[in-house]
Amino acid sequence: MNKQPLLSKVSIAVAALASILMFAWPLLIATDSQNENLLAQAVFMALMPLIIAIVLVEFSTGEIGSRQLAILGVMTAINAVIRLLGAGTAGIETAFFLIIIGAYIFRSGFGFILGSASILVSALLGAGVGPWLPFQMMAAGLVGIGAGALPRFKGKFAQLLTLCVYAVLASFVYGALMTLWNWPFLAGADSSVSYEAGAGLGANLLRFLNYEIATGGLLWDAGRAITTCALILIAAPALLTSLRRAANRGGFEG
C-alpha cells in the first residue's frame, strides 16, 4: 500500500481524469441534443461506481495488512459519526479534516479508501444514499489521494501550513465538483444560470460561476474551508501523534 507500481499509478491517473470529465460534462458537452445530454448523465451515473471499484482494487491489491485495515475501519467509523453529528449545519463540514490528516500519514491509497468509505458509511447510516453517492465518494476519494501526495516538510509549522493550504484548496475543488454534479439537475437546461450545451468551455464556466454565486455555493465552500482549517489547526498536532503511534509497525531482524 505504500509503494504503488507504475502500472497502478497510470491506472489511477486515468481513472481520476475519467471521473473529473464525468463531473464536468455540462461544461464540455458539445451536442445540444437534449436526449444525448440525458444519455450522458445517465451513463456517467452508471459508470462512476465501476471506476470507484477499479481504483479501490488498485489500491488494495498492494500490501494492505489487517492492522491498516483496522485503523481504516476505525477512522471511517469516527468520520462517519462526526459527519452525521455535524450534518444539517450549513457550511460546517466535519468529515474533511480526518480524511486529510489520515491520508497525510498513511498516503494516497489509504486516503482514497478513507474518503470514499467515510462517505459511504455515513450515507448508509444516515439516509444519504442517492444517485449523488458515487460522485461524492469519488470526490472525497480524490481529496484523499491529493492529501496523501502532499510534500512532507520537517517542521511542525510547515506541516500545519501545508495541510491548511491544501484544506482550503480541497474544500473549493470538492464544492465545485459536487455543484457541477447537481447543476443540470437543479437548474435544468432552460434557465438563465443553466449550462448551455455546445456553448463551449469559456461561456459555460461563466454561467457555472453565476450559478455558484446565485445559489450561494461559494459561501458554502468557504464555510467548509474555514471549518476544515480550524479543525486541522486544533486537532492535527494531537492526531498526528496518535496516528503515528498506531502506525508503528514491527518486523524481524536478521
Binding site: 489487517s66 492492522r67 509497525r249 514491527g250 518486523g251 524481524f252 531482524e253
Partner: peptide
Amino acid sequence: VPHFSGGTASGVRTIDGQDFSR
C-alpha cells in the same frame, strides 16, 4: 509480536515441531 506490536524480534518459534518464526 512483532507483526502487530511494532518493534523488532529475533528467535525461533515452532508449533508441532515446525518452524514458524517469521
